[in-house]
Amino acid sequence: MSDHDHDHKPAPVVDEVSDFEILEVAVRELAIEKGLFTMDDHRTWTEYIHTLGPTPAARLVAKAWLDPEYKKLCIEDGVTASREVDIDWVTSPPTQFGTPSDYCNLRVLADTPTLKHVVVCTLCSCYPRPILGQSPEWYRTPNYRRRLVRWPRQVLSEFGLQVPEDVEVRVADSNQKTRYIVMPNRPEGTDGWTEDQLTEIVTRDCLIGVAVPKPGVTSNVKLPVMKAANPVPH
């Protein structure tokens, strides 16, 4: 159960940038620069090999896109709104009582055509786990945490997201007991879509705010499996 003494003790991090980390970034960025692949393909693929399908948070967003009353509830009371997608913040795993790291105050940050939210935790790596699952590796790195608050547009562009100049970028720093998800704008080209269709395009990265949903880009496509070159007979 809770080890309350250690409630807020930050998890240790590797607080230095190694040559290998730099080499990985440099190889990737040069490949993008040379057009070997795109930044967006890279982000999409990384997200997809790291997640298994739409999260409950994706369904929450899809429902809100279809139902203005529900959208209002999401913005006013994220914890109550979560129950409609079968997430009870108060009783959900892993801690069952909303602490130490899963405090029960969800706020849904709704984007507008002139406002783009993105979430970070500069102090540690607070993340809305009950509704979004485990955080991605990059979300926990000092690189993301330290730089997003200060150079949000640069970091977002490293994820392949260019935010227009006339749109306000708002960084939400999750430093106390609130956990955030971003409700992105419903994209063009989704008229008449069902809740299930909409849910599929609200990927994890969209909910953190480092990507925006696009028709055709989903996180739950079939996992390609490489055939064995020398299969073992059985």
Partner: peptide
Amino acid sequence: YGVTNPDPPWKITLETTCDLL
């Protein structure tokens, strides 16, 4: 640094680079 994660954070992006190439 006392970190227990067995993999460096850049491993997943490295794998993506290999996959895309």
